Amino acid sequence: MSESIVQPTEIPVIESVAELRQHLQRLRNQNRTIGFVPTMGALHDGHLQLIKVARKSCDVVVVSIFVNPLQFGPNEDLNRYPRTFASDVEQSAAAGASIVFAPTVPEMYPDGFETSVNLHRMGAILEGASRPGHFQGVATVVMKLFWMVLPDRAFFGQKDAQQVGVIQRMSRDMNIPIELIIVPTVREADGLALSSRNRYLSPTERQQAGILYQALSHAAERFQTGVTSADVLLYEIREIIGSVTLSRLDYAEIVDSQTFEPLERVDRPATIVLAVFFGSTRLIDNWLLTPSNSEADRA
């Protein structure tokens, strides 16, 4: 893990925090705005869209590539998580990145490291309940990366809805002066949300995984016709997902978009969140539900 990373493109690939800070300080002294896109590599079009959006609003775009061991559980896919570094750097540069920050594990977590960031409630529900410790790992690495990069804006995908909520909550609680930009989910032709883990799916699993989009879009259509009962919408979602043979539901909930607490009725901005296994591959997705003003006024 400590071996030097070969730089395969013309944009700088920086491994050390000290070098990154020096490089970025020179740019700040030129009044350049800095955007930041944190990733774990294995880039797909969803990541590239984040970089492109960042490029449009920032003079400099830093993309981090770091497979964070703290956010993986003991029986999860840390060791087999896709690592495609050379391709990631090339794609980042083509999408508009200015710098790739690729720290090693010892650079991020030196000997004796023992500090973490823990969101006690939001980090323990839904994804946090299914993956204990996951959001502590996410919040810790994002906090460290924020302090390393010190960007003006940071860009995240809506596809990881609860992660977005955790980072927003952490940023509010800790008075982090970084503007968070949330970019809509990028989907494949059948609606499946792009994910680095999609490559784990067998051809049959991949074919059936499109049912997630069908379930979410069905619920959104039902909501638009006036169905606001979470129980009704969730029943129909579960029925649709259960109609394919290889799906195994982990959870499906309708939650308050700010707190991620479950709702009985969609009378405020809400998010459908779900996690479903296809074979050994676990996929997550979500859909935003926004009630009309009249519905919200009756709450």
Rank of each mutant, 00 (worst) to 15 (best):
residue 235 Y to F: 02
residue 162 Q to I: 12
residue 103 P to Y: 05
residue 66 F to T: 10
residue 24 L to P: 10
residue 69 P to D: 09
residue 124 A to F: 05
residue 108 M to E: 09
residue 70 L to G: 09
residue 182 I to A: 01
residue 289 L to I: 08
residue 285 D to L: 02
residue 227 V to S: 06
residue 267 D to Q: 12
residue 254 I to K: 11
residue 229 S to W: 03
residue 290 T to R: 11
residue 217 S to I: 06
residue 261 E to T: 06
residue 191 G to D: 10
residue 265 R to T: 11
residue 109 Y to Q: 07
residue 46 G to R: 04
residue 189 A to G: 11
residue 4 S to N: 13
residue 251 Y to V: 04
residue 287 W to D: 00
residue 94 A to S: 12
residue 185 T to L: 05
residue 162 Q to G: 15
residue 148 M to P: 02
residue 8 P to D: 07
residue 111 D to A: 14
residue 285 D to T: 00
residue 115 T to L: 01
residue 72 F to I: 10
residue 69 P to R: 13
residue 158 Q to C: 01
residue 15 E to L: 00
residue 181 I to D: 03
residue 243 S to I: 01
residue 76 E to G: 08
residue 191 G to Y: 07
residue 148 M to S: 14
residue 144 K to M: 11
residue 82 P to W: 13
residue 225 T to D: 12
residue 7 Q to F: 06
residue 131 R to F: 10
residue 92 S to F: 02
residue 144 K to Q: 12
residue 282 R to E: 13
residue 90 E to C: 09
residue 133 G to C: 14
residue 97 A to D: 14
residue 155 F to C: 02
residue 100 V to P: 03
residue 72 F to P: 06
residue 274 L to I: 11
residue 133 G to R: 14
residue 214 Q to L: 05
residue 73 G to K: 11
residue 31 N to P: 12
residue 119 L to W: 15
residue 277 F to N: 06
residue 188 E to G: 10
residue 140 T to M: 08
residue 251 Y to Q: 09
residue 204 T to R: 10
residue 61 V to M: 12
residue 235 Y to S: 00
residue 64 S to R: 04
residue 227 V to E: 15
residue 210 G to S: 13
residue 250 D to A: 03
residue 135 F to G: 07
residue 163 Q to A: 02
residue 36 F to P: 03
residue 165 G to V: 07
residue 25 Q to G: 01
residue 37 V to M: 00
residue 151 P to K: 01
residue 190 D to P: 05
residue 191 G to L: 05
residue 29 N to A: 14
residue 10 E to P: 06
residue 152 D to K: 09
residue 184 P to I: 00
residue 155 F to E: 00
residue 63 V to R: 01
residue 205 E to C: 11
residue 178 I to E: 01
residue 163 Q to T: 09
residue 172 R to N: 15
residue 289 L to Y: 13
residue 270 A to W: 07
residue 73 G to D: 04
residue 218 H to N: 12
residue 199 R to H: 13
residue 128 G to T: 09
residue 236 E to F: 11
residue 146 F to A: 01
residue 53 V to S: 01
residue 294 S to K: 12
residue 293 N to D: 15
residue 109 Y to D: 06
residue 270 A to E: 04
residue 133 G to M: 06
residue 201 L to Q: 10
residue 249 L to T: 15
residue 186 V to C: 08
residue 156 F to D: 13
residue 87 S to K: 15
residue 125 I to L: 12
residue 167 I to K: 05
residue 17 V to T: 12
residue 51 I to V: 13
residue 123 G to I: 14
residue 167 I to T: 05
residue 126 L to W: 09
residue 55 R to G: 04
residue 296 A to L: 07
residue 96 G to T: 05
residue 183 V to M: 02
residue 132 P to H: 08
residue 65 I to T: 00
residue 273 V to Q: 15
residue 170 M to Y: 10
residue 146 F to R: 00
residue 291 P to C: 13
residue 217 S to C: 00
residue 238 R to S: 05
residue 267 D to R: 06
residue 191 G to W: 07
residue 70 L to V: 10
residue 101 F to C: 03
residue 241 I to S: 08
residue 256 D to C: 01
residue 25 Q to W: 03
residue 127 E to P: 10
residue 105 V to I: 15
residue 71 Q to I: 09
residue 44 H to Q: 13
residue 230 A to W: 02
residue 126 L to M: 14
residue 186 V to I: 14
